[in-house]
Design a protein around this nucleic acid. Structure first.
Length: 150
DNA sequence: GCCAACGTTGGC
DNA sequence: GCCAACGTTGGC
């Protein structure tokens, strides 16, 4: 799952992007970085989640079209995500490229997902207390369940 | 706008 | 290595 604030870059922005794809850059959290760098494979699907907005929830599905590679925004001193501690010879931050697979027929609200926190979605990282990860794993079982309630 | 939950930073 | 201060995330 990849999270984004729709006011900044939402599912419709991805739909409007050239090739319906974009670089998922600017992630500056080590755990999230590890998922981008090590876990997400070309062809994998990811839920696109809208955070920090009126109706937080899953808005669409994206596909990983390029596996983890160094996040070049970290090297650009004029970029808001610039990190002087990330050296091009030893990059600290990684990104992937994603492409819109499709928007969901409806946004599956966080409130609805929460109703299944103790059964079908038990253990889902999104629902764990204090979760703030912007990139997080979804198990096969959880993926199938969420797909089934669309 | 408020606030809880973190992660990071930096002094010691 | 500890821990207080600070900044950020994100639901409400």
């Amino acid at each position: 799952m990849i999270k984004s604030e729709p006011d900044v870059f939402g599912i419709d922005d991805l739909a409007a992007a050239r090739g319906r794809r974009t670089s998922w850059d600017g992630v500056r959290n080590y755990q999230a970085r590890n998922f981008l760098r090590d876990e997400m494979k070309r062809g994998d699907l990811a839920f696109f989640y809208h955070s920090n907005c009126a109706e937080p929830g899953i808005a669409g599905i994206a596909k990983i079209v390029k596996e983890g590679y160094p996040d070049t925004t970290a090297f650009d001193s004029s970029d808001p995500h610039y990190d002087p501690n990330s050296d091009p010879s030893r990059p600290r931050w990684y990104m992937v490229d994603v492409q819109l697979q499709r928007k969901l027929k409806r946004t599956i609200a966080l409130a609805e997902l929460k109703r299944h926190a103790d059964d079908e979605l038990r253990g889902f990282a999104l629902l764990r207390r204090g979760n703030r990860l912007s990139v997080l794993p979804v198990s096969e079982e959880h993926w199938r369940f969420i797909s089934s309630i669309e």
